[in-house]
Computed example of a mutant assay.
Amino acid sequence: MEGASAMAVLDDVRQIDAGVLNIGYVDAGPADGAAVILLHGWPYDIHSFVDVVPLLTDAGCRVIVPYVRGYGTTRFQSDESIRNGQPSAMAVDVVELMGALDIDTAKLAGFDWGARTADIVAALWPERCRGLVSVSGYLIDSQESGRHPLPPKAEIAWWYQFYFATDRGREGYDKNRYDFARLIWRTASPQWAFDDATFGRSAAALDNPDHVDIVIHNYRWRLGLAAGEPQYAELEARLAEKPKIRVPAITLEGDANGAPHLEPSVYGKQFAGRYEHRTIGGGVGHNLPQEAPRAFADAVLQV
């Protein structure tokens, strides 16, 4: 199993105003290269792609790696903005970032929240997406489906959603976000032997002043316990219809993913364009780009 070195750091972080955010992002590779946007999840950061970036830039790609809202150096431009974690808002962030960087179209690739965001952009703005790489497949969902109970065995895997639904859970996450993130890393990637330096490099991104608000809103919104913003209602209505993804796509899954996920046979029908699924062996868990960077980069280049 591959693993990122704690010695490498994505430290050339730039800032740009895009939509409601001032986004921190890495921009690597030739300026005229084919654009690739890499999207991280929770509770990770841009260093999930620390070994993917050089593989893509060596192949001639321009690689953009933004901090998601609530992480790293990304900030809201207004103190009045709602700290909204709903999925459509995060997808709009990506479209706004592309506009700010004058990128008409790009390959999108991500895992966890980042895969969901990439899926949404590919489904709703296919003209902006030349190809999609999504870990754990089709992750588009709705508040309505989130209200329906799952079998107990499935529900227990989502324990933290119910914890976050309480004021005690919010306070607990705020006070213990490093320990919480470490626990999620270990349970989601049970065979990944990351060290303290590797964890600490990413955990620093959780110190963002909006982080807790974004995370809590995201999970409460999914359960229908928090309202979204009106400007995203039309997008969420379209997503509730489970739109098919028609751009070329490769889905990936680690053979040791400890996070809740569906089998490819369940979601494969949602990909209506050129489509391939790859299972990555060797004890690879949820943070697939950091645990198997070559397999992730190959999918991005080949999609």
Rank of each mutant, 00 (worst) to 15 (best):
I46M: 14
R62V: 00
M90C: 13
S48K: 13
D45K: 10
Y71G: 00
V65A: 02
F111V: 04
R62Q: 00
S48D: 12
T74N: 12
V68Q: 08
V94T: 06
S88I: 12
D112M: 04
M98N: 06
G85S: 07
V94S: 01
I103N: 09
L101M: 10
H40L: 03
D104E: 09
D102V: 05
L101S: 10
L55W: 09
L97M: 13
G99D: 15
D104L: 03
T57S: 06
T73K: 09
R69I: 04
T73S: 13
D112H: 05
S81L: 00
A109W: 04
I64R: 04
C61F: 04
L101D: 07
G110A: 02
S48T: 15
A109V: 02
Q86L: 14
Y44N: 10
E80M: 02
S81I: 00
L108C: 01
G60P: 11
L56Q: 08
Y71V: 01
G41D: 03
Y67Q: 01
A106E: 08
V65E: 02
D51I: 03
F49Y: 15
A59C: 10
T105L: 06
L101W: 10
M98H: 10
V95S: 11
S88T: 14
L39N: 08
G85L: 04
M98I: 03
V94G: 01
Y67N: 05
K107Y: 00
V92S: 00
P87S: 14
G41F: 03
I103D: 05
F76M: 07
T57H: 09
S78A: 13
E96S: 15
P54R: 15
V53F: 12
F49M: 07
C61Q: 02
E96I: 12
G60E: 09
G70S: 10
S88V: 12
A109L: 02
D93H: 04
S88M: 15
L108Q: 02
V52T: 11
D51V: 02
Y44T: 10
A91Y: 04
A109N: 03
F111Q: 08
V63F: 06
P43M: 13
S48W: 08
R62S: 00
P87I: 09
L56S: 07
G110I: 01
L55I: 10
V63S: 06
Y44E: 11
E96T: 13
G70P: 08
W42I: 04
I82F: 15
S48E: 11
G41T: 02
D79Y: 13
W113H: 00
S88Q: 15
G99H: 15
T57I: 03
P54V: 05
M90A: 15
S81R: 02
V65D: 01
V52L: 03
D51Q: 14
I82R: 14
M98P: 03
L101F: 11
L39C: 08
D102W: 05
T57Q: 07
M98R: 10
G72V: 07
S48P: 05
A59S: 12
D104A: 07
G60Q: 10
V95M: 11
V50D: 13
T73C: 08
A100L: 13
G60L: 12
G41H: 04
Q77C: 09
L101Q: 08
